[in-house]
Amino acid sequence: MAAAAAAGAGPEMVRGQVFDVGPRYTNLSYIGEGAYGMVCSAYDNVNKVRVAIKKISPFEHQTYCQRTLREIKILLRFRHENIIGINDIIRAPTIEQMKDVYIVQDLMETDLYKLLKTQHLSNDHICYFLYQILRGLKYIHSANVLHRDLKPSNLLLNTTCDLKICDFGLARVADPDHDHTGFLTEYVATRWYRAPEIMLNSKGYTKSIDIWSVGCILAEMLSNRPIFPGKHYLDQLNHILGILGSPSQEDLNCIINLKARNYLLSLPHKNKVPWNRLFPNADSKALDLLDKMLTFNPHKRIEVEQALAHPYLEQYYDPSDEPIAEAPFKFDMELDDLPKEKLKELIFEETARFQPGYRS
């Protein structure tokens, strides 16, 4: 834990890192770190609560700039109880001085990944967590956004079992017609939660990839272990087919990539493993919904509104309290091709509203 900075004593240090967030945020305490930044909790002297502050230093890398800009653009436009918001952003007053960006968010005690390492969940908890994931996802999908990296560590939890989806750095506007060349190379989302079509096709992607990830998360809540822990690309596919069985001819016809289709045709026939054999203690309604989410063919996979209306979630289902976005989200430009200098300018502009004396 960093010592509390005395008023006016300059930035606090946390594990050798400068955290320049005073005077409003003090009493910093280390939480963890990701690929390009550290997260601390801090005391907000204005709202009198502890908050989470993520320090991001992305400006050396085009990919990190892209992810940072995506996350900020999306989260500043989203407003939903099951999606983490941005409360404040701290950065230098000029673009030349801006080396880091500090993002202030609600402090959540833990995440689903940490929880599943230590606790076996009751059916009631599984049901409530799944409902909140789908409630947040309904809003995301209504904005025409794909999260693309749903996994237990991106689901934040607090002691009252509130759940918030975080990390929109890989999110995209849904565009089933656009052929994202190089899709697989830039697709760094965790393999275990990846839909089979991501490994088999490169053309376009749809909201059904997020539903697949939610199915993987439900299976993990039922058993405290990942359902498809593939060691590499082909191993991942083999794990999936080992449980779902061989795809039907109709399902194979959806695979545009001939090499991928021929690979699947070359494999020995596998039978589907019954879900109640894998999860003998699970609620039968939970397994019915799991089956509809972990469907090989993305066109037959359940959609988020149908999933919310499934009998497993009937005690929570309330369409009048499951809000959607006001308007579909649009990125003005494809960020993939922009140089990091341009992305830095866009991050600077996007964060201006939090600067003292800002006038829109």
Score class of each variant (00 low, 15 high):
residue 2 A to H: 10
residue 2 A to C: 06
residue 3 A to N: 11
residue 5 A to Y: 05
residue 5 A to R: 13
residue 10 G to M: 09
residue 10 G to W: 14
residue 16 G to S: 10
residue 18 V to P: 01
residue 19 F to C: 12
residue 19 F to G: 04
residue 20 D to H: 13
residue 21 V to E: 15
residue 21 V to S: 07
residue 23 P to L: 07
residue 26 T to V: 07
residue 27 N to D: 12
residue 28 L to F: 03
residue 31 I to Q: 15
residue 32 G to S: 14
residue 34 G to Y: 00
residue 35 A to K: 14
residue 37 G to A: 15
residue 39 V to M: 07
residue 40 C to D: 03
residue 40 C to Y: 14
residue 40 C to N: 10
residue 41 S to L: 12
residue 41 S to A: 12
residue 42 A to S: 14
residue 42 A to L: 08
residue 47 N to L: 14
residue 51 V to C: 14
residue 52 A to C: 13
residue 54 K to G: 05
residue 56 I to V: 14
residue 56 I to A: 14
residue 57 S to F: 15
residue 58 P to F: 15
residue 58 P to G: 15
residue 58 P to Y: 15
residue 59 F to S: 15
residue 62 Q to A: 11
residue 63 T to Q: 11
residue 64 Y to A: 15
residue 66 Q to C: 12
residue 67 R to M: 13
residue 68 T to F: 15
residue 69 L to P: 01
residue 69 L to A: 08
residue 70 R to Y: 00
residue 73 K to A: 11
residue 75 L to I: 07
residue 76 L to A: 11
residue 78 F to V: 13
residue 81 E to M: 04
residue 82 N to H: 08
residue 82 N to T: 10
residue 84 I to K: 04
residue 85 G to A: 12
residue 86 I to R: 00
residue 87 N to V: 08
residue 91 R to T: 02
residue 94 T to M: 14
residue 95 I to N: 15
residue 95 I to R: 04
residue 97 Q to F: 12
residue 99 K to S: 05
residue 105 Q to S: 07
residue 106 D to C: 03
residue 106 D to G: 00
residue 111 D to H: 02
residue 111 D to S: 01
residue 112 L to Y: 02
residue 113 Y to D: 03
residue 114 K to E: 10
residue 119 Q to T: 02
residue 120 H to P: 13
residue 123 N to F: 09
residue 123 N to L: 07
residue 124 D to G: 01
residue 126 I to L: 11
residue 128 Y to K: 09
residue 128 Y to P: 02
residue 129 F to K: 07
residue 130 L to R: 04
residue 133 I to H: 04
residue 136 G to K: 05
residue 137 L to K: 04
residue 138 K to M: 07
residue 138 K to A: 10
residue 144 N to T: 13
residue 146 L to Q: 14
residue 147 H to N: 13
residue 147 H to V: 07
residue 148 R to I: 09
residue 150 L to V: 04
residue 152 P to C: 04
residue 155 L to V: 03
residue 158 N to K: 15
residue 160 T to V: 11
residue 161 C to A: 08
residue 161 C to P: 01
residue 163 L to A: 04
residue 167 D to P: 03
residue 169 G to F: 07
residue 170 L to M: 13
residue 173 V to R: 10
residue 174 A to P: 05
residue 174 A to D: 04
residue 175 D to G: 08
residue 175 D to I: 09
residue 176 P to Y: 08
residue 178 H to N: 14
residue 179 D to I: 11
residue 179 D to P: 09
residue 179 D to M: 08
residue 180 H to R: 00
residue 180 H to F: 08
residue 181 T to A: 00
residue 182 G to V: 15
residue 182 G to Y: 13
residue 183 F to P: 12
residue 184 L to Y: 05
residue 185 T to I: 10
residue 186 E to K: 13
residue 190 T to W: 06
residue 193 Y to S: 04
residue 193 Y to W: 08
residue 195 A to Q: 08
residue 195 A to H: 03
residue 195 A to D: 15
residue 197 E to G: 00
residue 198 I to P: 01
residue 199 M to C: 04
residue 202 S to V: 13
residue 204 G to S: 08
residue 204 G to V: 15
residue 205 Y to R: 13
residue 208 S to W: 05
residue 209 I to N: 13
residue 209 I to A: 08
residue 210 D to W: 04
residue 211 I to N: 15
residue 213 S to T: 04
residue 214 V to M: 10
residue 215 G to Y: 07
residue 217 I to C: 04
residue 219 A to W: 11
residue 224 N to S: 04
residue 225 R to D: 04
residue 225 R to Q: 05
residue 227 I to H: 02
residue 229 P to Y: 03
residue 230 G to R: 04
residue 231 K to N: 13
residue 231 K to Q: 04
residue 233 Y to P: 00
residue 234 L to K: 03
residue 234 L to S: 10
residue 235 D to V: 14
residue 236 Q to P: 01
residue 239 H to D: 12
residue 242 G to K: 12
residue 244 L to P: 08
residue 245 G to Q: 10
residue 245 G to R: 06
residue 246 S to P: 00
residue 248 S to Y: 14
residue 252 L to R: 10
residue 253 N to H: 11
residue 256 I to S: 06
residue 258 L to W: 11
residue 258 L to P: 11
residue 259 K to F: 11
residue 259 K to R: 11
residue 264 L to W: 00
residue 265 L to G: 03
residue 265 L to P: 07
residue 268 P to A: 00
residue 271 N to P: 02
residue 273 V to F: 02
residue 273 V to S: 08
residue 275 W to C: 15
residue 277 R to V: 10
residue 279 F to Y: 13
residue 281 N to W: 04
residue 282 A to R: 08
residue 282 A to G: 04
residue 284 S to F: 08
residue 285 K to W: 07
residue 286 A to C: 01
residue 287 L to W: 07
residue 288 D to T: 12
residue 289 L to A: 06
residue 292 K to E: 09
residue 293 M to P: 05
residue 294 L to T: 09
residue 296 F to Q: 04
residue 298 P to F: 03
residue 299 H to E: 11
residue 299 H to V: 13
residue 300 K to Y: 11
residue 302 I to R: 08
residue 303 E to F: 01
residue 303 E to R: 04
residue 304 V to A: 11
residue 305 E to F: 10
residue 307 A to H: 00
residue 307 A to T: 11
residue 307 A to F: 00
residue 308 L to I: 04
residue 311 P to I: 09
residue 314 E to S: 04
residue 316 Y to W: 02
residue 319 P to Q: 15
residue 321 D to S: 00
residue 323 P to D: 08
residue 323 P to A: 04
residue 323 P to H: 14
residue 326 E to C: 03
residue 327 A to H: 04
residue 331 F to H: 11
residue 332 D to T: 05
residue 336 D to V: 15
residue 336 D to H: 00
residue 341 E to T: 13
residue 341 E to R: 09
residue 342 K to L: 05
residue 343 L to D: 12
residue 344 K to R: 13
residue 347 I to K: 12
residue 347 I to L: 13
residue 349 E to P: 03
residue 353 R to W: 08
residue 355 Q to K: 15
residue 355 Q to W: 05
residue 356 P to W: 01
residue 358 Y to T: 12
residue 358 Y to Q: 11
residue 358 Y to G: 09
residue 359 R to P: 10
residue 360 S to N: 10
